[in-house]
Computed example of a mutant assay.
Amino acid sequence: MRIGLTGGIASGKSTVSLYLASLGMEIIDGDLLAREVLVLYPEILTYLQDTYGDLIFQEGQLDRRALGRIIFQDEEKKRAYLDVIMPKIVEEARKRLKEAKGSFVVLDAALLFEEGLEKDVDITVTVFVPYEVQLERLLKRDGLTVSEAVSRIRSQMPLAEKKRRADHVVDNSGSREETYQQINEILKSLGFGEIKGQENEKKKKEEE
């Protein structure tokens, strides 16, 4: 079973991904791939150096936060960057999906639908929160201005659209336990089997 996991910035996708990893699933992390391709394909760094130079490089090292501030404020620059890096990320993601040996493998990719990677998995899951919650969490997490936070959210496919396209939706606007319970129900429907600790927690609640 190949599961495509997606969501928007500050929606809690990483929380869900970590939980699935704790259950023993193999995770193909799109954010990690974005870092790895910079080493695997040096021409990407060359492009960034030639395009932005000292604006995003400090002592020869890429400042990803500085890069983000530039490209998320300018749609043309963002598209130019994605045109260079995304084909390599997609190539690596597809390669690793084919190489994966586990019964349940998760492709954790923010741009799952945008890059057509939903075609490479069996089912898709969107981690969803209302816009107001997403904005509040992003402001708190990254220390951005409201303008910067709004720009980053708007630079992605709306969460409502990702929700519409997904086979399953996890509403992450409540407690972490509520989120985990939704994931457990989805996994149960997919035949994942008993989740360790779930029965003990159920018995504990019944005793209380």
Rank of each mutant, 00 (worst) to 15 (best):
A110S: 05
Q61I: 13
R137F: 01
L117C: 04
Q156C: 00
N172M: 09
Q73R: 13
M25L: 15
I3K: 07
F128K: 05
Q73N: 12
G60L: 08
D29V: 11
V84L: 04
D50Y: 02
Q156M: 01
L190E: 09
R176V: 15
E76D: 14
V127M: 11
A100E: 02
E99N: 06
S175G: 06
K77N: 05
S103N: 15
G8W: 03
E132R: 12
Y52L: 12
I56H: 08
Q198G: 01
E194I: 11
D171R: 09
M157Q: 03
R152S: 00
E178W: 10
I153H: 00
A149E: 02
L38S: 12
L45F: 08
I186W: 04
S11A: 15
N184F: 04
D63Y: 13
K13D: 11
M25N: 10
E178P: 08
A66T: 07
G174Y: 07
F57K: 06
I44S: 05
A110E: 02
K140D: 03
E206L: 15
K163F: 10
Q134R: 04
E99T: 03
R69V: 01
A100L: 06
V133K: 07
I28W: 05
R154D: 10
N200A: 15
Q61C: 05
F192G: 06
M86G: 00
I27N: 05
A110G: 00
R94F: 07
V129S: 03
E136S: 11
E161I: 11
G191A: 13
Y47E: 04
K77F: 01
I153T: 00
E36V: 13
S151E: 05
K204G: 03
T46I: 12
V106G: 03
D167P: 02
K163H: 09
R65Y: 03
Y81A: 03
S155M: 01
I186Y: 01
E178M: 13
Y41D: 08
D122R: 13
S173G: 10
G12L: 11
L55E: 15
L187Y: 10
D50R: 12
S103R: 15
D142Y: 02
D108E: 09
E115D: 02
P158W: 04
L33W: 09
L48Q: 05
E207F: 12
G8F: 08
E178A: 14
K202A: 15
G53N: 14
D108W: 09
K95A: 07
R94G: 11
F104E: 08
D171E: 14
